[in-house]
Design a protein around this nucleic acid. Structure first.
Length: 425
RNA sequence: GGUGGGGUUCCCGAGUGGUCAAAGGGGGCAGACUGUAAAUCUGUUGUCAAACGGCUUCGGAGGUUCAAAUCCUCCCCCCACCA
């Protein structure tokens, strides 16, 4: 009993369940529908969304039917959970566009064929049709204000005089509760999963199902992903790491995972790969025996990049990483360079700009590597700038045509890992 | 609507006429040490300039002054208490 739940527990993948014994039983009986909701606040998911997605995908592998609910309706309102300020409302067009993009990304993780094929739903389908009167009488009647005010997501905002909470966001939880009820009716879905900030919304749905139908439904939440050193998980240089390759290139995506701290490697392998726990243990043991070899990070980066971007993109990212962090760039063919730097940010400059030699400061600013001349100069003086992987220590340094690799590009680098390619056309 | 407090650089926050491009902390970036890790230490963090020195910035618009983040006027926004 509790095999599936135990394996999630082993990986550290859940923080709360409403009824552990019953959920354990339900998860050990294949064929149950389980739902996770995603709000279309942007046109791509990012790695911060990945844990619930992975959880859902793992449950599908255990024989269950995953339902990915895109919040075409709830996205119009805004979830106050875990937020201290009111959201800006999105337009209907934005929500529609975002919903469609997110739907496509979820297809990478879930299997939409077979006997337990994943199901995609959009809560706009049942929410938009409701009239205000129906809404208040059929759904609103089941909630007391007292109950809603007691929810953590709302409570904090009500008590905080600085921000407050609008009636709109206050109502969010009953919209989501109604989603659960609708999915229960349509797909006999009795379990909702979500991030730990979703607890209040999930339990609201469970209560609604009980009041309306008398049936018992359940909830399970995944933990908040944190890093050991307290860095924000899912951010790289202040930017979110997106699943959309147009927003975060596969190379950067791969690098993000490769740069994981030792202390997080095992945990992240458990969260973000489908590898069996025993294998993760073995990798982790090997890693800790010789951490400088970065066995764990490599495996993690490979697994996650393959899952999100596919084998071909993974190979490109790995090749690029090998070349960039491997040493000399001399002797590489133009074709290799193009391939290696396909994903690396690049700039194009006119060849005549450097015919007589271009100053390093100019080069850094024109290529977009540095924001101002002053910054560029400071970086060079501080020893943080490399051209073709060789340090430039002198702000007056200039580069002419003989600095071109394969007669066409210059590789700029600041610090250890920040590359930029300048093409001369 | 009334009364009081407040809006400063990426964030928090000091600064109440010149010595202010503005303390301190956080964050960011870079260096050293390393392993594309963590911790630690160091430097740096408006912009132009090699430098001297300019220029733009303290909610907005005006004004006083040789000189304004600092004083005055009007306006906008936030908060507290009262109604």
């Amino acid at each position: 009993m509790g095999r599936v739940l135990d394996s999630l527990k082993q990986r550290g993948m859940f923080s709360q369940v409403t009824n552990e014994a019953e959920v354990a039983k339900l998860l050990d009986t294949p064929g149950n529908a389980i739902y996770v909701g995603f709000d279309p606040t942007a046109d791509s998911l990012h790695v911060g969304h990945m844990l619930p997605i992975m959880g859902l995908a793992m449950l599908q592998r255990a024989g269950h039917i995953p339902i990915a609910l895109v919040g075409g309706a709830t996205g119009m309102v805004g979830d106050p959970s875990g937020r201290s300020t009111e959201r800006n409302l999105l337009t209907a067009d934005e929500v529609r566009h975002n919903s469609e993009c997110i739907r496509k990304q979820l297809m990478h993780f879930l299997d939409f064929s077979g006997s337990n094929a994943a199901i995609m739903e959009n809560n706009a389908d049942w929410t938009e049709k409701l009239t205000a009167i129906e809404w208040l009488r059929d759904v609103g009647k089941h909630f007391t204000i007292n109950y809603m005010l007691a929810k953590e997501s709302v409570k904090r905002r009500v008590e905080d005089r600085e921000s407050g909470v609008s009636y709109t966001e206050f109502s969010y939880m009953i919209l989501q509760a109604n989603d659960f009820l609708q999915l229960f009716r349509r797909h006999n879905c009795r379990l909702q999963a979500g991030g730990s900030d979703q607890w209040g919304n999930i339990t609201a749905g469970i209560d609604l199902i009980r009041r309306v139908t008398g049936a018992e439904a359940f909830g399970i939440t995944f933990p908040l992903v944190t890093t050991s050193s307290g860095e924000k998980f899912g951010k790289s240089a202040g930017n979110a790491v997106w699943l959309d390759p147009a927003r975060t290139s596969p190379y950067r995506f791969y690098q993000y995972w490769l740069q994981t701290e030792d202390a997080d490697v095992e945990k992240f392998l458990g969260f973000f790969s489908f590898l069996p726990w025993e294998e993760i243990q073995a990798i982790s043991a090997e890693h800790m025996a010789a951490p400088e070899r970065r066995v764990g990070q490599r495996r993690l980066a490979e697994e996650v990049t393959r899952l999100v971007h596919g084998e071909a993109e993974l190979q490109r990212a790995m090749n690029a990483s090998k070349a960039l962090f491997g040493g000399s760039l001399n002797g590489l063919e133009k074709r290799d360079l193009d391939d290696i730097f396909a994903d690396v940010p690049s700039a194009t400059m006119d060849r005549s700009d450097m015919a007589t030699g271009i100053g390093i400061v100019d080069l850094l600013v024109k290529s977009g590597m540095c924001a101002s001349n002053g910054e560029a100069r400071r970086m060079v003086q501080g020893g943080g700038i490399y051209v073709n992987n060789e340090r430039v220590g002198e702000p007056a340094a200039t580069f002419g045509p003989d600095a071109l690799l394969a007669d066409s590009v210059i590789v700029l680098r600041s610090g250890k890992k920040n590359y930029r390619l300048v093409r001369f056309g």
